[in-house]
Each structure stands twice: as C-alpha cells, then as structure tokens.
Design a protein around this nucleic acid. Structure first.
Lengths: 244, 244
DNA sequence: AAGTGGTCTAGACCACGCG
DNA sequence: GCGTGGTCTAGACCACTTG
C-alpha cells in the first residue's frame, strides 16, 4: 500500500478515524468502543476489516480488548513523549508542539571508515553521505545526530533538506519506503566530538541511540547515531507481552 | 487464549514453528519463506491462518514481506540482546544463555509513599509489595530492581519466589494474564540507595527503566524501576515505521 | 502470463463475561 | 441466554514482480 494514496484502504481509514477520536477525547479512557458488530454497521464493512483496524489500535496502545466485554480505551497520555517507533526529529517536534532548532554542522559525501561500512554491510568503496546535525532545546545544544546514508539511494543532498527534514525528503520527494529499524540504546563516555558540538555542562556521559534503518525491499539504507545529554534524554516504549 | 493450554491455536503453533526454524537456521537470512499458498498446503490450513502467523513474524522482526516477491527472512542476530518487549530477568538470562545471580534485598508489604501510589493510580491505603533485588554479572552488582506490586493481586510472596522468578509465579501459579507495559528509559544521577546496593565504581549516573505493567483486564498491576550501571546497560528495539 | 502478497467479504463455531 | 471478542474457513478481486 502506498503512502501517498490517501488511504484508499478501508481498515487504515477506520483505524485513523478511531485513533483520532481517542486522541480527541471523543472516546475517553476506560470507555468501551462500540462492539465489532456495531462498528460493522457504522462503517458498512465486514467484521474482518473492523478487526484489522482494532488490531492496529491494540498494537499501538490505544485500546485493550477483553473477550466477552469489549474494547477498552487506554490512557494514551500517561507518557507524553512518544519516541518509540521510527520517528524523525521534525515529526517529534510536531507531536510535542515544540520547535527545536537544527543546525547542520557537517554535510559531505565520503568513503566511510571501517566501523561504518562494516556496520552498514557494504563494501569499502561505496559512498555514503555523512551528516552531523545538532538540535537545540532553548539555548543549549542537547542532541548530536550523526547520519550515514547510502548515496546510491539519495543522489543529492543539500543543507536545506538536512535542516528541514531528511525523512520528509526521502519519503516525500524520493518516495523511498522506509520499513523498519533496529535500535540500540546505551550510555557512553562522551568523546571530544560530543564536547565540541554539545553543551554538556558537568556531564561526562551521553545517552546514545544507534539505529539501522531499512527499506521495504529489505536494503539497508541508513545508520544513525543520536547522542543526547543525559538529563534531557527520554525514550518511551509501549510493549505487549509476547505469549508463548 | 490461555498461556497454559499448549497452543491449541493453529496460527500460534505455526508462528512458533516458523520462528524456531528461522532461529535454527533452517531458513536463513535473505531466504524466501515458502509462499502463502505453499504454507497453506504444508500446514493444511486456510490462507488467513497462514497470514496471521506471518503477521506476527513480521511484527517481531523475523521477516519482511514484499508484494509480488515473497517473505524474506531478516537477520535476527544483528543485535543479540533482545530486551525489547515485556520480558523478565530470568527469561532474559535464558535467552542470553548466561546465568545471573539474584539477591533479594527487601521484601515487605507496605502502604506506599506518595510518588508510588500516585504513579500506580491507587488510593493511599492500598497495600503493595515492595521488592528490591540486585542482579550480579560476574562478581559485581550491576542492576537494582525495585518492584511495587499491588497486594490485591498477589496475596503471598516469599524470598524464594522473588529469587527464582516473579513472572513465572505470577503467570504460572496465579495465572494472572500480563497484557502490556509502558516503559520509559532515562539517565539519572545515582542516589545513596544506588551506591548502597550497586558496585558503581567511578560512575555517578545510572540508566533507569521505569515501567508500569498492566493485566489483560486493564488493571494496573506493578510498577518497576530497574536501575543499571551505565556501562552494562543495553536496550534493543525493533520498530516498524508507522504508515500515515 | 503466472505467481506473489494485499484487501475484503460472508459465514461458521468457540470461549468468555454477565445478568 | 445473550452479546462480546477469538479462531478458522473459502472464495473473490486487486497490485506488484518477474520472466
């Protein structure tokens, strides 16, 4: 299914509408959603289509189903910082209603060093874009993002694109389809580079989010290291228990 | 569906079998799984049942589907530390093939202080179990787990249960159904308590995972604070991009 | 053109909660 | 007993990839 086709999908349309109503407060925490058969009538679709929509709501933490009872609306606001999932910095700003200031420090197309090309599983000679950006909250530089993007997927990059939103350009203009990412969070001693680009004050460690991003065709596309001053770092996750 | 009923479910059985074959290496990274219609024949079930199994594999990061091509096996081993999801310490040890040493430091039933009962959304008078445990890797105490569990769900707790596995007791013996958890990861200055229970060496911060755990009937059940020495802390996440 | 996954439907039966 | 969600089936048509 395409991103740009404005949801010709029934189940995604219904998912979005229900999610919106939960976010709005039309359905409130601990309310029951209409039953599946009621939703069938409301939207004029089959039960399976309704169930697909409800499954996504469940997966995303909007509702909790209970056999014999119905679908309860969960409190989506207990944590208000939804960093989980593959989300870009600009999208994050939007969700939080704040604006962050991004500065592009480095933008170049290089043959990467060993640790990078090995991590990306490419050969030595393949070129990648190296992008360093700092993110300001208030007056202080809090986050340093180091991106490495395979050039074969993104021919041209400009300061403006990097300052605005890489993901917007990549998914919008280039219509590359980002599928999934593997992330790892650690705490590391800060480097000279961290000190150079960030206002670390008394801190001598940084919280580091390393992630590999993949496209729908299963090609690795990007490696990112996001380095945060510890006191401003938050990562939030909604996890369902794996049965079995 | 029950945990204890040995998967009378077709789609879970098939999911488990396929996941096992991927973990085994029977299906290798970048292989294509048999097509949906082949799997239908292999397992003698309908297409929807196969698709349910494949959806879970997709969700868990085992495979990536591609319209017109098939289902590719992903490299499940790029990160070998699957901490994501709701997983107990003992299960983690099993997956890593290591054994950790758990010591129960505090076990008592109390009326909690303000920050705890407010976080749990209960009233002042309700009793909770307070459990402090340290986890040793090698010779050093690396993790301090502080659990608060509502007493109304768990009447009796013993040192043995806490030392072995709380989750095993809760899901096995009491057959409470854990549904989901909300987690938050931050880095905090270490407290006197951290210094008391952990071998922090030169570190003056800890990585903190706070999580609220909920049952299938939507009741909050537990609050946990897991405090890690920064150099040994890793959190791994597999995230699919949210369309729309 | 043939094969793959993606969406949607209609109908059946089961398991659970509640009055 | 009734209504709820959970599982499973059979069949249809569409969209995409590959030869």
């Amino acid at each position: 299914m395409l991103l740009g086709d404005f949801m010709s999908n029934k189940y995604l349309t219904i998912y979005n509408e229900l999610a919106e109503k939960i976010t709005n407060g039309y359905y409130k925490t601990n309310d029951l959603l209409p039953s599946e058969s009621e939703l069938m009538k409301i939207y004029g679709v089959s039960r399976d289509t309704i169930r697909k929509s409800l499954n996504i709501l469940t997966q995303e933490g909007y509702i909790q189903k209970s056999q014999g009872k119905g679908s309860f609306v969960l409190d989506i606001n207990r944590f208000t910082f939804p960093v989980s999932g593959v989300v870009s910095f600009k999208e994050l700003g939007k969700r939080l209603g704040k604006s962050f200031d991004t500065e592009v420090k480095v933008l170049e197309c290089i043959q990467p060093k060993e640790d990078i090309y090995k991590g990306l599983n490419i050969n030595k000679n393949e070129k990648v874009w190296r992008i360093f950006r700092t993110r300001k909250i208030g007056q202080e530089n809090i986050i340093l993002d180091k991106d490495y993007i395979l050039q074969k997927f993104v021919n041209n990059l400009t300061y403006d694109i990097c300052k605005n939103s890489l993901y917007e350009y990549i998914e919008g203009e280039l219509s590359l389809k980002i599928a999934y990412a593997k992330k790892q969070i650690t705490v590391e001693k800060c480097t000279q580079q961290d000190k150079k680009y960030l206002d670390l004050n008394e801190y001598d460690t940084v919280a580091v989010v390393k992630s590999y991003t993949y496209l729908e065709d299963n090609n690795i596309f990007q490696y990112t290291e996001s380095r945060h001053r510890p006191d401003k770092f938050v990562f939030v996750d909604f996890a369902r228990r794996n049965k079995i």
